[in-house]
Computed example of a mutant assay.
Amino acid sequence: MEWRDQGIVLAARPHGETAVILELFTREHGRHLGVVHGGVSRKKAPALQPGNQLDAVWRARLESHMGTWTVEPLVSRAATILSDPLRLAALSATCALCAFILPEREALPDFQERTESLCDAIASGEGWLRDYVFWEMSLLEIGGFRLDLSVCAAGGGANDLAFISPRTGRAVSRAGAGEWADRLLVLPELMLGGMATLDGVLAALEVTGHFLEKRLAPSLGERPLPPARGRLLAALKREA
């Protein structure tokens, strides 16, 4: 078995004395693992940092085997933002959440393209805050929990949407909420197309975080969310 693809480094874990198990989010083969021999070396290790883009060849005797990677660096995003803790935290959170949620060996070309675009935006520093919020919303959908912010779950169309049901992820209008408003999540304007202010981003990530933690994580074996996401929230709050 052998194929070639491009992908984003999600994680690289030590394997034995000199090798690493490299996890890539590839364009045509989804989230895929393999061994990189000599991956801890000074020559190879810098290319295997989360968020970097690699050209990779995967080989195995059988498709069911973990296999091995032969990789070449294409884009070193991590190195360009080492001096920016906020963007570095965002890149780390993106990769950690992909590794946590995405199914293994399932091609997701549209979402992979969106993730590459987000990583490029984080690396450039342009427009990534808004992109990250909507990327998390898309990630929830990939994980099987779609937020429906189109119309009020209690009836009344799409007018004056102000809340989200913490159970169903459906939008609720002020009139539809009634006396139940204090039991609902506040719907940030950003999630309806509003301005991407820092406070708005934090509010939106509180909403997506609720569904990641309370709805999606339990379906994945009750594992806690990756600490990298918490570090991103902490970094954003320091900026606020």
Results as ranks from 00 to 15, higher is better:
T70M: 05
A89W: 11
G143R: 08
S92T: 14
A158N: 13
E23N: 13
P14D: 14
L202P: 03
S165P: 01
L149R: 08
T197L: 08
G178P: 02
Y132Q: 07
L139I: 10
A60Q: 10
V36H: 01
V172A: 01
A121G: 09
R231W: 04
A121H: 07
A204Y: 02
L129H: 15
A204K: 01
V40L: 14
W128V: 00
S64I: 03
S124G: 13
T115M: 06
N159F: 12
E179T: 11
W3A: 04
L220I: 11
D131Q: 15
F145E: 02
V133T: 13
G7K: 11
A228L: 06
W58K: 11
I101G: 08
K44P: 02
L48T: 10
L74D: 09
D199I: 04
V75G: 04
E222K: 03
G38F: 01
D84T: 01
P226D: 13
L225K: 07
L185K: 01
V172M: 01
P218M: 04
L161K: 03
A240L: 11
G125V: 03
V35P: 00
Q6E: 15
A235M: 09
G51D: 10
L185S: 02
A123C: 10
E126D: 14
G169N: 01
G127M: 06
A123R: 06
R114Y: 10
A181G: 02
P46D: 03
D5C: 06
G194K: 10
E28A: 13
W180T: 05
F100E: 03
L192E: 07
A153Q: 09
M137D: 10
